[in-house]
Each structure stands twice: as C-alpha cells, then as structure tokens.
Design a binder for these strands. Structure first.
Length: 276
DNA sequence: GAGCAGGTCCGTA
DNA sequence: TACGGACCTGCT
C-alpha cells in the first residue's frame, strides 16, 4: 500500500460526519468505488495508507488536504458554539466527491434517512454501475450519466426510489444533454452555480448547496437541512432576523462565517447531530 | 396505525 | 416572494 503523511486530518470524522455517500466502511478503512476505480484508505495516526484498483489516485484532492485547516478554523471560530463544534472534530475536512455520484446520492437523500440512502445508492451501483475487481472482491461504482440513462422509470420504481425516480430520470437526462456540466459549474460564481444546479428537476436549494460544497469546492456554500435549521434557530437567532427563506438564511450564514461558511456548516452539523 | 425522516414541486395569494 | 399541501418508502 502507498503511504501519505497528513496533518490536521481525521479520516473517520471526515467520512462519517454525513457529508458523503461515496465512501463506505470496510475493514480498518474505507472504500470508494465512485471515482472510476476502487480506492481503499485507512489511517494510522498521521499516516494514510491507501491503495487503488487500477490507476493513480489523488488522495490529497479527495480529502482536500491542501485546505489550510488551521487558518480556516481560526477564521470561522467566532463564537462558543463554533469553538465547541470544531473541538469535537478538529480533523474534519470537507470532502471532494465526484460530481454525478454526489448529485445522485443527494437526490436519494431527499426526505430520507441514512440507511435508506445507503441502500438506494448501493442498488443503483449494482444495477447500473461499472464492475470492478479489487483484492479478490467485486465492487460496483455509481453509474455514469450514460449508464444511468439506461434506467427506465419502471426499473427505478422497483428499486423503491419512490417519487425520487422522476428526479433521477429527469436530472440524468439534463446532464446527458449537456445543459449542466461540472466543468461549467466550476467556472461560475457560487450563486450562479447554485442557480444553475436548481434548474435540474429534483434539485432544490439544499441539494444544490450540497453539490456545491461536497463536489464543486464552493466552500462558502451553507446547506441548510432540518438539523442545521434547528441549530441556527436555537443558537443563531441572527440568521432568521432578516427573513425566514432559505436564501436569506444561507446568505446570512455566509455573511456571518465568511468564505469558509461550508466548513462552519459541517462542524456545526456533525457536532449537533452527535451531541443532541 | 399515525407520524416522521438529512426536500422539492406546484398551486395559490 | 412566500406559504402550505402532497408525496414513495421504511421504520417506530
């Protein structure tokens, strides 16, 4: 296995804080089969050991190891709640997941619980994705848009996607048509990328923000789900003082925490879900 | 069996 | 621009 020395990084917190459905626990480490091959990573202190099924893998990119974490934390640590949240998981970094798998998995997450989301994404992998052999075992990757486009509504229904089947079908068609591409999105400003993502059927404010943050690298994105909503209602009345719409609250969060609001969101999210 | 879970869409005002 | 109801499915 390859080795990589790391600082200010905790693999477990980064993967298990709830920001990714691409990494799955296996043995001492985690597997990701959604990056065009299979990648395995485990952590031993300040060392990451990793391996992959075929090509080279850029571990530094996947876990955003170049992000200046101490500086980021210093910048967002502007109140006690945030200080406690960072202390809870100081090695948590924002993930960088591949675009389409990230998009599809967060559509699966709409009004759904984590075990169900994992089940749905795994069903999609096994039914439509690429097959890989790695260490004598078989793995399935999340389908590409082209692979996903072969799915019929009837088939998706049999996977128990419920009404999300229409979202996945329509969104896949839009991606295939080239209306929305990750390359283009990355060239845009955050607000523009967020708006463009919302043009996809089934992608609203929250899912668009998750894709912006966890795949496209817009670190100012501040996804607001029910958990974060509870936190900002209870701890940060300031966010709702100017209005109750998603847009206003998320904008208030960016103004309050700054350009690393996404990191603030994830620390708050993980801390509040694990504690309360 | 009613209620809810990591939202979004659509109709209405 | 904002609000409220409906919505698959699985679990409690």
């Amino acid at each position: 296995m390859n080795e990589l020395k790391v600082n200010h990084f905790d693999l477990k917190d980064t993967i298990e804080c709830g920001q990714t459905f691409c990494w799955i626990k296996e043995g001492e480490g985690y597997i990701n089969s959604d990056v065009g091959q299979v990648v395995y990573v485990e952590q031993d202190g300040n060392k990451l050991r990793y391996d992959s099924s075929s090509g080279k893998v850029d571990i530094r990119e996947l876990f955003r190891l170049a992000d200046p974490l101490p500086e980021i934390q210093k910048e967002i640590m502007i109140d006690k709640m945030m200080k406690d949240s960072i202390s809870f998981a100081p090695g948590l970094r924002i993930i960088k997941d591949p675009f389409f798998p990230c998009l599809i998995s967060f559509i699966c997450s709409i009004r759904n619980n984590i075990p169900s989301i994992r089940r749905l994404t795994q069903s999609l992998r096994e039914k439509y994705g690429s097959i890989y052999k790695f260490r004598e075992k078989t793995y399935y990757g999340m389908p590409t848009p082209k692979q996903m486009s072969k799915a019929t509504i009837r088939e998706l229904d049999s996977l128990r996607l419920g009404w999300r089947k229409h979202f996945i079908k329509h969104t896949t068609e839009s991606i295939i048509s080239g209306e929305v591409t990750p390359e283009h999105l990355k060239e845009l400003e955050y607000e523009e990328a967020h708006e463009l993502l919302k043009s996809l059927h089934g992608v609203g404010d929250k899912v668009a923000d998750c894709v912006c943050l966890f795949s496209l690298g817009f670190l100012e994105a501040f996804p607001i789900d029910v958990w974060i909503e509870r936190v900002i209602q209870k701890q940060y009345g300031i966010f709702t003082a100017t209005g109750n719409s998603y847009t206003k609250k998320s904008k208030a969060a960016r103004e309050y925490f700054g350009s690393y609001a996404g990191y603030a969101q994830e620390y708050l999210y993980y801390f509040s879900r694990s504690t309360f």
